[in-house]
Design a protein around this nucleic acid. Sequence first.
RNA 1: GCGCCCGUAGCUCAACGGAUAGAGCAACUGGUUUCUACCCAGUAGGUUGGGGGUUCGAUUCCCUCCGGGCGCACCA
Length: 552
Amino acid sequence: MTPEELSKTIKESLESLVASQKLDLPEIPEIKIERPKSKDHGDFASNIALMVSKSAGKNPREVAQLLVDVLSKNPGLKKVDIAGPGFLNFTLDSASLGELAKSILEQADKYGHTKTLNNETINIEFISANPTGPLHLGHTRWAAVGDAIARVLAASGAKVVREFYINDRGAQLDKFGISICAVANNEAIPEDGYHGAYVKDLAAEIVKERPEILKLSKDKQEIEFREEGYKRQLKQQQNVLDGFRTHFDVWYSERSLHSSGAVEKGLALLKKHGHVFEHEGATWLKTTDFGDDKDRVLIKADGEYTYFASDTAYYVDKRSRGNDVNIYLLGADHHGYVNRLRAVAACAGDDPDKNVEVLIGQLVKMLKNGQEVRLSKRAGNIITLEDLVDEVGVDAARYTLTRYPVDTPLTLEIDLLTSHTNDNPVFYVQYAHARIAAVIRSAQEKGIDWQKNKFNPAALVTEQEAELLGALSEFPRIVSSAAQLRQPHRVARYLEELATAYHSFYSACRVLPLVGEPVTDETIARLVLCAATKQVVKNGLDLLGVSAPEKM
RNA sequence: GCGCCCGUAGCUCAACGGAUAGAGCAACUGGUUUCUACCCAGUAGGUUGGGGGUUCGAUUCCCUCCGGGCGCACCA
């Protein structure tokens, strides 16, 4: 019996109590099953009696007792207890609990997938770095987290579009071109330009391939260097992200918004809804109608579109492409955008609570030798995605970054991460996977075919086996809550618990028979349990974009 | 000044409004002639920043104060 089945059983019991007029309930709420922290509280628990007691007009323990009377007739339930204020604690028959292992193997890589978010089309935009330099540590956090969110959303039945917005228009890109041009001409880079070492490399590369640029006028040189630099820098970002296993469905260029007429189209829609006005020669959007602190300029007095105009058009464009929910992952330094973006949605006639979701991620700090390393693209003193990967590898980098909720500032102690990997739980989880793989290899070498032998779930009787099965049963619920809350770190934390349950099982329960001992029901059942655990660890690591090694 | 985020064990951090607030690291005590010891079992460590409130029940929700981070452009 899985938690879902138990939940359904409780619901039916409540319905029967209502039908026989033993209980008076206007409606039955969603019945949540959780796994108790303490083993004394059984395999599963529910607070349903506490939830409905008020509307039923009975005290919680009375409601619980009514439920126990019905539920205890169920053959899969060994014991149903009432505890504390009115919790229901369920202890399953060991065979009923053990069935899960087989079921997981049948579902294989689909175990954990649900239809929680069915039919929702969700667009998730993240990183969206300027194409004026390498991706830094902050971007790296979004690369890992954004991609992991996309994966849990997809696993929960959503249609997901991963999108990267390229800021290929405006002053920053011009400064980038000017900086490269200066280096190429052996001149000093302006103070507000880009000073990183990569600018020199780009300049050298471009001059080598297209020496004729240097013969152009300064104005034209700056444009050419800008365009060449942009092309190369974007390509570099794409390559790096590819190596980081973060793949986008859409790379959306800000320029294309303008060239395709999307900006005018967006503006027209906003006008239609009546929130655009003229003031002192500029065109404004009245975002204060919807909670913004001040109105925002769309077209400056000099006739130029603002960056904000691109943003509004971009939003309208995303919606026109069928995205119901638009998630934006922004750094804390951009949190001033939240009200603005929500107001844009409202001005376009949408519901900001439904169509827009802004996840604000706190910044990543890095300590080296006990001192904070300042991240600044312009200063050139930056820690890049590649730096982090070179130090700890893709697996450890992704895992570390997805292990924490994004609304807390993250401090990476590089000395700790680089010195050795003991502190990094990714290895603990991966090790569990590799360890299981070794057991299964061993079984094959001994000629034990656990797939053909009959699986007897009742052979799984120890405390450690029940604990492990309980942990396995939680996976679908964890994934779907991670998707609904947009918090992939729940998957990582879960995997650590699952790995602990496995290691504990492994120490207490010998799987393969010793020399001279026979293959029993217990051997087969434990092998099935191992295989099921291996599957779930792999499924979980996949959601984080972390590999599941067969050997370590 | 206004707004957003954060404050939990010595350190880094968890905890759909649920039961005795949990892990890892660091400290201490044990465990492997057997399937991977990158492991397991255990000890110690807390007024969840302070104070109010909401309720069967608050680390979680509301108010307030203290402390820290980040924002408040006809920049992008």
